[in-house]
């Protein structure tokens, strides 16, 4: 695929920022409103797939390599699992913490003043402990994972130029 017409590219340029902002909003507000890392990541990956369809896989591969997307996906996975292991680690470091694997160690404590409040309404984003951080990690993982699937499949089965 080597891109579609000028009309499609223009409409894609107009619609792309709104899709990205909506997807990132769903990821960032995963602990407050419906949605989360998986759903917002799917929305953002849909916007990137729209770019891929409109501009063609050859143009997109010139901009971003699938190895870099694999690194991003692995970073998301490592962030997720390390946040899960921090629950065990902090129990050994500080005896005041009580936690296990995947325990929410940031909620309701005064040592680390980030995301430590208990949810009191839909406007407070600094609530819910490690859940927003896990949403960011899973969102990064889903964005990179779904986009690298679409990108590799589109680029590998592309129509040869001049035939």
């Amino acid at each position: 695929m080597s891109g579609m017409s000028r009309i499609v590219k223009t409409i894609t340029n107009v619609a792309f920022p709104f899709v990205m902002i909506y997807g990132l909003y769903v990821i960032a507000h995963g602990h407050l409103t419906p949605g989360g890392g998986f759903q917002g990541g799917a929305v953002v990956a849909s916007g990137l797939a729209m770019i891929l369809v409109a501009y063609g896989s050859i143009w997109v591969v010139g901009k971003v390599k699938e190895k870099h997307l694999s690194v991003l996906e692995s970073l998301g996975a490592i962030g997720f699992i390390s946040l899960a292991f921090f629950g065990i680690l902090l129990v050994y470091l500080y005896s005041s913490f009580e936690g296990t694997f995947f325990s929410n160690f940031l909620i309701g404590q005064d040592t680390i003043p980030i995301f430590n409040e208990i949810g009191k309404g839909l406007a407070n984003i600094n609530t819910a402990g490690i859940i927003p951080l896990m949403n960011f990690a899973v969102g990064l993982k889903v964005i990179a994972g779904l986009f690298v699937i679409v990108l590799v499949m589109a680029y590998s089965t592309r129509i040869k130029e001049g035939k």
Binding site: G30, H31, G36, I107, G119, T127, A128, G129, I131, N135
Partner: peptide, 9 residues
């Protein structure tokens, strides 16, 4: 869990 969204919690 501190989350307002119970599903995410």
């Amino acid at each position: 869990t501190g989350a307002d969204n119970g599903v995410t919690g």
